[in-house]
């Protein structure tokens, strides 16, 4: 039986080496491309006719659009709507990444810390830039809330600073860990089905079935959580707290 972490192995499909750095087009890259082509195709057909009374595909596309639009309106407010294209893109990409991973023999690019950390750090940097651009040095008040006694500053400021700096870490690890653990669990349980044979394997098979449903749910939920946390960070940067 193969190791449960073998499924996360990155295999180069088109080797590319630039100045000694491996930039190969891998199975991970292929799924990322799929996460672009799939929504591109979907939105192309869903919005091809653009009828006032939407068809099935168009309804789904509209629901997605309204879902993200409402998420931004509720968590950031009206001025957050100018970041709508970025948030929408982020949600679709992460959601597709998680969902594509649920297909057998595919690859979950969101189960790699390199990907989630790159996304989280990019979000962190952009949000921090937005915060300073909007509030200037006043943005530093983030680390010392209004109304707190000055004597608490030596405790509060490090705490706030650590909580602020840990955002990209928690954001990336949450998604990476959820995806990785879910897939390892599926792999291990599926291994039991094979090991125990037709009769004995029924029990783990039923469990695998249940866990698979759970994993679909987690895939959607983690994409949602990733996006909503981005919205919350954006809200902090725009409106402070």
């Amino acid at each position: 039986m193969a190791s449960p972490v073998e499924q996360f192995t990155i295999k180069p499909l088109v080797p590319i080496h630039v100045a000694g750095i491996d930039l190969s087009f891998t199975n991970s890259s292929l799924m990322m491309v799929a996460a672009v082509l799939l929504p591109a195709t979907f939105f192309w057909f869903a919005t091809a006719r653009r009828t006032v009374v939407p068809g099935r595909l168009q309804s789904v596309a509209e629901i997605l659009y309204e879902f993200i639009a409402n998420m931004i309106r509720d968590n950031v407010g009206k001025e957050g709507m100018k970041y709508f294209p970025y948030i929408f893109t982020l949600f679709v990409f992460v959601f597709l990444g998680n969902m594509i991973g649920m297909l057998p023999y595919s690859f979950t690019f969101t189960s790699h810390i390199a990907v989630t950390a790159a996304l989280a750090v990019a979000i962190f940097i952009v949000v921090t830039i937005i915060g300073f651009a909007k509030h200037g040095t006043h943005y530093l008040r983030m680390f010392f809330p209004h109304g707190a006694p000055l004597a608490t500053a030596p405790i509060l400021i490090p705490i706030e600073l650590i909580s602020y700096l840990s955002r990209p870490f928690s954001l990336s690890v949450r998604l990476f860990a959820n995806m990785t653990v879910g897939h390892i669990m599926l792999k291990v349980l599926a291994g039991f089905v094979v090991a125990l044979g037709i009769v004995g394997g029924l029990m783990p098979f039923a469990v695998v079935l249940g866990i698979t449903v759970l994993e679909f749910f987690i895939a959607a939920l983690q994409a949602y959580v990733f996006t909503i946390l981005t919205c919350i960070y954006l809200n902090d940067a725009l409106n402070m707290h």
């Binding site: 991970s28 990322m32 970025y86």
Partner: peptide
């Protein structure tokens, strides 16, 4: 050793998706 490749393709694909979303879907 796989990080540069992953990050490069992440940047390329997410930018492509951004273009798809802003030029077509949205």
């Amino acid at each position: 050793s796989t990080f540069p490749s992953q990050i490069l393709w992440l940047v390329i694909t997410i930018f492509a998706l951004y273009l798809v979303m802003t030029r077509m879907a949205i």
